[in-house]
Amino acid sequence: MNIFRLLGDLSHLLAIIILLVKIWKTRSCAGISGKSQILFAVVYTSRYLDLINAFISPYNTIMKIVFLAASYGTIYLMYMKFKATYDVNHDTFRIEFLIAPAAVLALIVNHAFEPLEILWTFSIYLESVAILPQLFLVSKTGEAESITSHYLFMLGSYRALYIFNWIYRYYAENHYDLIAIVAGIVQTVLYCDFFYLYITKVLKGKKLQLPA
């Protein structure tokens, strides 16, 4: 565990908490893509199956359980409890166009052709693009609430911090995983445009509004 990894995990955790609290406090999930949330649930489910057969540390186990629970909790809030506030007309991204290529790629490019390994690889590929429905929703409505922007910023920072963690681990521990690194870079790049808007607008107290 290094500082980048810890900050990355905390940023990820904070993103998930921000989202849950936002939905709970405002009693609304307007502006949030349920499609992205479904993709994240698929990501965590397929990646954390190793909860069953591998124990790494109490930290690792607890975080995995929290991510899974928060992810399914968010889906429950969006699709059941506050369904009436869900922006279904704008959340039109076709997630099969992300799931299918991620699955095919995981079958072709992986570390070992074993069920758990392929599912882990699939989760890494899918996570890298899972935010696209959310970014698509923001671009369709042309704006995002500040709290949604903070959520997106924390979620984007998480994988960016992981990249620093991987650089550190390469030098300090001779450890690297090309699949995770390449997918992590793709994931972070997808947020770049948003990062720019966040820093130039939201941090200066303005609403995140896209040019018409």
């Binding site: 190793d50 790494i56 540390s57 521990e173 995770a180």
Partner: peptide, 10 residues
């Protein structure tokens, strides 16, 4: 170089 010996990341 150890490639992905243990998946200890989240």
């Amino acid at each position: 170089i150890v490639i992905n010996e243990i998946k200890d990341e989240l």
